[in-house]
């Protein structure tokens, strides 16, 4: 058996996945990235290998992606989040044509063709308003942690509007709503709705086509997924809560598998 590892060194979390020849996940790991990206990547790789009952040295091909993809010296290949997303999303949902990836500090949309090639993409501006950081800040203003965002929003009874123009200015909006006696759950729901609106705008700019596949840590919040489903219509794929944060790592591993096979077959030179 040949084993391929994918490591997604994100700005908030580092994820690693080990797959075998069949592409099925044999081991995975997730941990906070922190400030030492190389160490986080190495630790995630070791944990994912251990979960697959392997030593790191037994991994045949390591591919990195994400914000810290260049920090992993043991890698054979690095790919962008866009390519990793295309591989991962199409493995899980072969008819995927548009991928939305909402992470802790970035939002990316890529459109892929029938062969998996990324034909266009759009990234959010350098602004927290379209990312998980916006939700995290909104929750923090109200005394909640990021893990409480999902359960909190799911208890919302009526929506309130959050402009979402700026994560910093949103604080004033949140305080204003709280002072008017609006429930934190409704404010959280409004913040998620604002993020959904930004996501759809970005997808339109990328000339989105169905099927849509939604990935990234923020999609583990059911409210986010359901609001996006309502906005987009048609076929909208959202991986399971276990998988949704690992799609890039999975995609990186699968990209490495394809590349490794091509190199071994002598079709290309490495």
């Amino acid at each position: 058996m040949t084993y391929y590892a994918g490591v997604d060194v994100g700005s908030t979390y580092t994820k690693a996945v080990v797959v075998g020849d069949d592409g099925e996940i044999a081991g995975r790991a997730l941990l906070k990235t922190g400030f030492r990206l190389a160490e986080a990547a190495s630790e995630a790789l070791e944990s994912a290998a251990a979960a697959a009952s392997l030593e790191p040295g037994e991994l045949d091909y390591v591919t990195t992606t994400g914000y810290g993809r260049f920090q992993v010296s043991s890698r054979q290949l690095n790919v962008t989040d866009l390519t990793a997303a295309a591989f991962g999303a199409r493995f899980l949902y072969p008819q995927t044509r548009t991928v939305l990836d909402v992470g802790g500090q970035t939002m990316k949309v890529s459109r892929v063709d029938g062969t998996g090639k990324v034909v266009s993409f759009r990234l959010n501006d350098k602004c927290a308003a379209g990312t998980g950081a916006f939700l995290e800040k909104t929750a923090r203003y109200m005394g909640f942690g990021i893990e409480e965002v999902g359960p909190l929003a799911s208890t919302s009874r009526s929506d309130v509007s959050i402009s979402g123009v700026c994560a910093v200015f949103a604080e004033a909006e949140v305080i204003n709503h709280l002072s008017q006696g609006i429930a934190p759950a409704d404010i959280m729901h409004g913040a998620i709705a604002s993020l959904v609106s930004r996501s759809v705008q970005l997808m339109k700019r990328a000339k989105m086509e169905p099927e849509h596949t939604l990935i990234g840590g923020i999609l583990r919040f059911e409210t986010m997924a359901s609001l996006l489903r309502e906005s987009l219509g048609g076929v909208v794929n959202v991986p399971s809560t276990d998988d949704v944060q690992h799609v890039l790592a999975l995609g990186a591993a699968l990209a490495g598998r394809q590349r490794h096979r091509s190199v071994l077959a002598g079709r290309v030179h490495a």
Binding site: V79, T80, L82, T83, T115, G116, K117, V118, F121, A255, Q258, R259, R261, S262, R267, V268
Partner: peptide, 13 residues
């Protein structure tokens, strides 16, 4: 640039 490179790399396979 990276996306261009990767499209080429994986089209070779």
């Amino acid at each position: 640039l990276e996306t261009f490179i990767e499209n080429v790399l994986f089209a070779e396979a």
